[in-house]
Write a protein that binds this DNA or RNA. Structure first.
Lengths: 230, 230
DNA sequence: ACAAAAGTGTTCGCTTTACACCCATGT
DNA sequence: ACATGGGTGTAAAGCGAACACTTTTGT
């Protein structure tokens, strides 16, 4: 076969943030082209000299100023030949989880703005980015049941109730507090810090921290954390 | 951003076949270029006018003569900039399961040969195709535990023991016959045909057929079929 | 009769689930 | 004292795992 026709390859980043019981999505406002002014996922074209993973990290950094440690490949979108008005663009989507309070996005050259949006109040998105976000959400929910998450989304020290709220927020359904705590504790990836925290009234909550080693081990292994009722 | 540099986009097909207690992989022998004479996964460059899924099906058909109904996107390989000696090529890998007895591969213009290889006797593969195959195998094994498979791999009518052998072959470990049967039957996706079959001596086996409707339903839903001991 | 493959139930232990009250602190 | 959020135990049911013999046929 001769040289391939000009398909352009892009990467997109779905960055979920969690704060105070709400899930957020990181978006940028497009500065150029037919989609100028619309909100979209951070992303852009892959350079021929860089790997895909490098490319997403670079684009994310360039467009929002945010650096994340880890992104997971989600899916490659390229069945619809017209998904991008600029021509044939195939996009490899990656997703990440971060604590948004630590990361103030700032717009850069390619974006006129960058900001966090609550998941239930997303603006209309450019391209097929709504589909991509939906796919990412599905994956995130599925991921909860076979891998621990939270490390990237919570403060270093957190109360158990923070973890519970995180899970109920993502799953959009309640969990049984006792059962959830029992199961999660049994995984042995939380360390008590000895410290405690109090918000207004109520009994102070003891603070925990993830044990990084076991956390990463469990992430690899694919554990079970059946979460029907918690 | 200006026009993207010339990255070429390819698709590769990992087609697993199952027959008589063995897993096979469909390979083609490369006819051109630096990898001439080597075995590789069927695949090739995506045309700018076609979707990714269309592209894999087309390439598979062109190179091996085999048409499959369904392929699942596996992963996109593009972190290694030098994975292809022809330049920068990013490949979207898809995998499929078929009954190889119904599908005699024949080489076509781009391949000098196409054939089934037992998984444990693969030749050295071109590019990073060994890595891709390994990834596909991991996925296939994982898939077994949350989705029913078998429909695509067995004859329309099959004995229960065929199904059992299929599972033990893929998982490479024995299953408890009684438990496996109990669980699988409980899913309610097998219909008795009333017919039976006998191979040499031994009690004849009654033949089953998949109930297509429930099969597809369960594939969507993501069911649980814990298979530690079967 | 024996060899070969198909078919079938029960028991035990663990995990999941459902469920409600007390604790520590602030106001 | 009451409001607020944090923290805890137990019993019942269901599921997964382990385990061996009988049936039907050919030779």
């Amino acid at each position: 076969m001769a040289a391939a026709p000009a398909i352009r390859l892009a990467v997109d980043a779905i960055v979920f943030g969690y704060r105070e019981g709400r899930l957020f999505l990181l978006l940028i406002q497009r500065r150029f082209g037919a989609t100028k002014g619309m909100w979209a996922l951070p992303g852009g074209f892959v350079l021929s000299s860089e790997g895909l993973t490098t490319a997403v990290h670079r684009e994310l950094k360039e467009e929002t100023g945010i650096a994340v440690k880890w992104m997971e490949q989600l899916f490659t979108f390229g069945d619809d030949v017209h998904r991008d008005p600029r021509g044939r663009v195939v996009s490899v989507a990656y997703f990440a989880l971060v604590d948004p309070s630590a990361l103030k996005p700032h717009a850069d050259t390619d974006a006129s703005a960058a900001d966090w949006f609550p998941l239930d109040e997303l603006p209309k998105l450019a391209f097929d980015h709504s589909t991509i976000v939906r796919t990412a959400l599905d994956r995130l929910r599925a991921k909860l049941t076979y891998q621990p998450i939270g490390f990237e989304l919570l403060d270093r020290d957190f109360a158990f109730s923070d973890l519970e709220t995180l899970y109920t927020t993502i799953l959009e359904r309640p969990l049984d507090r006792r059962n959830f705590r029992k199961k999660f504790m049994a995984l042995g990836l939380l360390k008590a810090t000895g410290k405690s925290r109090q918000l207004g009234s109520g009994r102070p909550a003891q603070l925990f921290r993830f044990d990084r080693k076991s956390y990463e081990t469990l992430q690899q292994k694919g554990i079970f954390l059946d979460l029907n009722a918690g």
